[in-house]
Amino acid sequence: MKAIVHENKAGLEGLTYKEVSEPEVKKNQVKVQLKAAGMNRRDIAVTHRHSPDSGPLVLGSDGAGVISEVGEDVSQWKVGDEVVINPGLGWANISEAPPEGFEILGLPDDGTFGEYIVIDQDHVETKPNHLSWIEAGVLPLAALTAYRVLFTRGRVKKGDTVMLPGIGSGVLTFALKFAKAIEARVIVTSRSQEKLEKAKSLGADVAIDTNSDWNEELKDEKVDLLIESVGRATFNKSLKIIRKGGTIVTFGATTEDTVEIDIRHFFYGQFNLLGSTMGSAEELRSMLAFIEQHQIKPEVDRTFQLSEYDYAFNYLKDTKNFGKIGFDLS
């Protein structure tokens, strides 16, 4: 089969598009003929984390397709079923943190940037009917991350004000859509006027420049929950804009990941600071039910062929996207 492979060199220079052996199905596994796969910033990080000396690795965490073969003892799936891949390996039930041994598909295991993938039968879920193949393929990792951030960790509720600095990523566009679905108020920031306008078209109530004075721009707002994924560039601005007793949930850092805070300001403000990453299979199923209930679709920015991997990875690296980037394998 054809696949995007990382080998021989660290970083993006180690990427190639080549013929590799089609994976074989074992007991309790299913083979999925992929129709679409989704990109995440993790894919770029993996090109630096994966050791070139450890052999070739098929990248990719997100995907959707049709089951083409089932292994021995597979009872819940059959050939022809349309499924999405659960990229979180080894996290079955909701818990305060991932269990020991939790991994994300695409490192160390081969991922979704190929024509086929073999995966345990309990790591696929039924594809929502209202989604196209591309929409289903880009969905799982980012949507699950946003769902856990908002509902499990942030405990958002109707009427809350949620702030999303640096709108444009897959996770934050899902967070915007999820928050609006439960009638929360949403504030977004970006350095791009185009991204601010797109966010407003999706329902954002307030959209401001990331480099502006947030306290002046939002002096009439009360931020209950802030989703922080930028890092050092915005973290202290985030800490100074949430209401006393408010909550910051952080799931990543696109700028420097080391920050310094005024601890006295923090404890006087009675703030809550929570971490989050991905989510469990139980939360994935809840997220899929939620998007079906509200007929939510991913915001798809662009799609590429697998052979266009070089342009696709650099497009993602330069943060040009608003929403998700996908590979079309149909």
Rank of each mutant, 00 (worst) to 15 (best):
M287L: 13
F113R: 00
K324Q: 10
T254N: 05
Q270L: 13
P56T: 05
I134P: 02
D328G: 01
G101I: 00
L329G: 01
E135P: 08
E197N: 15
L284M: 13
V149T: 09
D110S: 12
P298T: 03
L144I: 03
E299M: 08
A204I: 04
T250R: 09
D257T: 11
I241G: 08
G245V: 02
R243D: 03
D224G: 03
A10P: 12
V84P: 15
V25P: 09
F304S: 03
G60P: 10
D109C: 09
L284Q: 08
E194L: 04
T112F: 00
R191G: 10
S286N: 15
G323A: 08
E216L: 03
D53W: 03
L59W: 01
G275A: 14
L274W: 12
T16P: 02
F322P: 06
D81R: 04
E221I: 02
G14Y: 11
D209V: 02
E216N: 06
I44L: 15
K158G: 10
D257K: 14
I296S: 09
F266D: 07
W214Y: 06
D318M: 11
I242F: 12
K158A: 14
S238P: 02
V124P: 08
D73H: 13
G14D: 14
V58C: 06
R302W: 03
D43S: 10
G275H: 13
S190T: 09
K244E: 06
A233Y: 02
H130K: 13
P128N: 04
V206N: 04
V149E: 12
G38Q: 02
A136K: 01
F313N: 02
I85K: 03
V66G: 10
P98I: 00
V84W: 08
S276I: 11
S201M: 05
F174D: 05
M278N: 14
I227S: 07
I325S: 03
